[in-house]
Simulated assay, not measured.
Amino acid sequence: MKTWLHANRRIIAFLLLLGVFRSAIADWNPVPTASMRPTILEGDVVLVNRLAYDLRVPFSDTVLARLGDPCRGDIVTFSSPQDGTRLIKRVVALPGDTVEMRDNRLLVNGEQARYEPLGRESPVHVGQRRIAAEREREAIAGSERIVQWLPGSTAHSSFGPVVVPADEYLVLGDNRDNSEDSRYIGFVPRTKLIARAERILVSADILDHWQPRFARFGTPLH
Rank of each mutant, 00 (worst) to 15 (best):
R22H: 12
S23A: 07
A24K: 10
A24N: 08
I25Y: 11
D27A: 13
D27G: 12
N29W: 15
P30C: 04
P30Q: 11
P30A: 02
P32W: 01
P32Q: 05
P32L: 00
T33C: 05
T33E: 05
T33I: 03
T33G: 12
A34Y: 11
S35K: 02
S35W: 02
S35V: 02
M36I: 00
M36D: 00
M36V: 02
M36L: 00
M36Y: 03
R37K: 14
R37W: 07
R37T: 10
P38T: 01
I40W: 05
G43C: 10
G43Q: 01
D44M: 06
V45S: 09
V45Q: 01
L47I: 13
V48S: 08
V48I: 12
R50W: 00
R50D: 08
L51R: 07
L51T: 01
A52D: 07
Y53E: 03
Y53V: 08
Y53Q: 09
D54H: 12
D54C: 06
D54W: 07
L55Y: 09
L55N: 07
R56L: 05
R56I: 05
R56D: 10
V57P: 04
P58I: 00
F59L: 10
F59A: 05
F59W: 05
F59T: 04
F59N: 09
D61K: 13
D61V: 10
D61Y: 11
T62E: 13
V63G: 09
V63F: 10
V63S: 02
L64W: 06
A65F: 13
R66D: 09
L67C: 05
L67Y: 02
G68V: 06
D69E: 15
D69C: 11
D69T: 15
D69R: 15
P70F: 00
C71F: 14
C71M: 14
R72V: 09
D74L: 00
D74Y: 01
I75Q: 04
I75F: 07
T77Y: 07
F78T: 01
F78H: 05
F78S: 04
S79L: 13
D83V: 03
D83K: 08
G84W: 03
G84N: 01
R86P: 13
L87V: 11
I88F: 05
K89T: 06
K89H: 11
R90M: 09
R90K: 07
R90W: 03
R90I: 07
V91P: 02
V92T: 09
A93M: 09
A93W: 08
L94Q: 10
P95D: 08
P95N: 04
P95V: 04
D97M: 10
D97E: 11
T98F: 11
E100L: 14
R102D: 14
R102E: 14
R102H: 15
D103N: 15
D103V: 09
N104Y: 12
N104Q: 14
N104W: 13
N104K: 13
N104M: 12
R105A: 14
